[in-house]
């Protein structure tokens, strides 16, 4: 079976909401039916067939060919299957997804993986602001699953994150892990200011220097390799070629905080 492939046939300049084009929604539908699905294009409503050429016959495996940042909500609410984005993805990619795999070969926009509840998102490029944060008004953000970013990520990554794993190979913006409730965030580049501010629990692992807010964290030398091997075990299970022991070496320092919010969070630094 061939992946169900969507290729833009016209210049898409306005934001297009692709929430409907996900494996659990399209299973059992014919191409002619899929082409008749209505989606939002800016403020207008249009048919899928007017914007995309649709080919293939396997809705569990979807490809967005020639994707660009105006394609929003890709894989939003997805429950299973896989979506490959060949190019850039717009805002709200993987928002509230609970299963399956999204792979983006380019960059991802803001609010990616917001309130994610399961599954895996791989971003080969960089990502915008509020990655794995919570939707406006929600009590907590990402609640399970894994996001791996090969490039950089913007500000307020993992804001209110409750559970799951995020790995960012590049640099991250300010306010990362603000008000974090739990979960694990691994930062392999530089972190912006106010890292972990107001965090209650959760683990932040920093391979480079970490910019923690003053007087909110208490640090002490740390020798244990901790649970790094368990993350490595999971990465091997999902086929992610990242050798953490080689990349990180031995931890140097462990900070607990935010002390103004109970101090049950931790920041493990490998280069203090």
């Amino acid at each position: 079976m061939k992946p169900l492939t969507f290729t833009p046939t016209a210049e898409i300049t306005k934001p297009v909401d692709l929430t409907a084009l996900r494996p659990d929604n399209l299973t059992g539908m014919k191409i002619t039916d899929i082409e008749r699905i209505k989606i939002r294009n800016g403020s207008a409503s249009e048919l899928v067939g007017d914007l995309f050429a649709v080919s293939g016959d396997n809705p569990r495996d979807i490809v967005f060919d020639g994707a660009r940042s105006s394609l929003e909500c890709i894989g939003s609410g997805m429950k299973y299957g896989s979506i490959q984005v060949m190019g850039d993805a717009g805002a709200l990619t993987g928002c509230q997804m609970s299963g399956g795999v999204i792979t983006i070969t380019g960059d991802a926009g803001n609010f990616c993986a917001n309130s994610m509840r399961g599954g895996l998102i791989r971003i080969r490029g960089s990502c915008g602001d509020y990655l794995a944060s919570g939707l406006p008004g929600s009590k907590f953000a990402m609640n399970n699953g894994c996001v791996i970013v090969n490039g950089n990520a913007g500000k307020r990554l993992a804001d209110r994150m409750r559970r799951g794993l995020i790995i960012v190979h590049g640099d991250v913006g300010p306010g990362t892990c603000s008000a974090m409730i739990a979960g694990t965030v691994m930062l392999l580049g530089n972190s912006g200011g106010n890292l972990g501010v107001h965090m209650k629990r959760g683990s932040i692992i920093c391979s480079e220097s970490c910019d923690l807010p003053d007087d909110r964290f208490l640090g002490q030398p740390f020798e244990g390799k901790g649970f790094l091997a368990l993350i490595q075990r999971y990465l091997e299970e999902i086929g992610e070629p990242l050798n953490l022991c080689e990349k990180l070496g031995s931890p140097r320092y462990r900070f607990i905080g935010d002390l103004s919010h109970g101090g049950m969070g931790e920041v493990i630094s490998y280069r203090f």
């Binding site: 794993l165 649970f227 368990l230 299970e237």
Partner: peptide, 8 residues
């Protein structure tokens, strides 16, 4: 501290 990676 609880840590969940994948299903474990």
């Amino acid at each position: 501290i609880s840590k969940k990676f994948g299903t474990r």
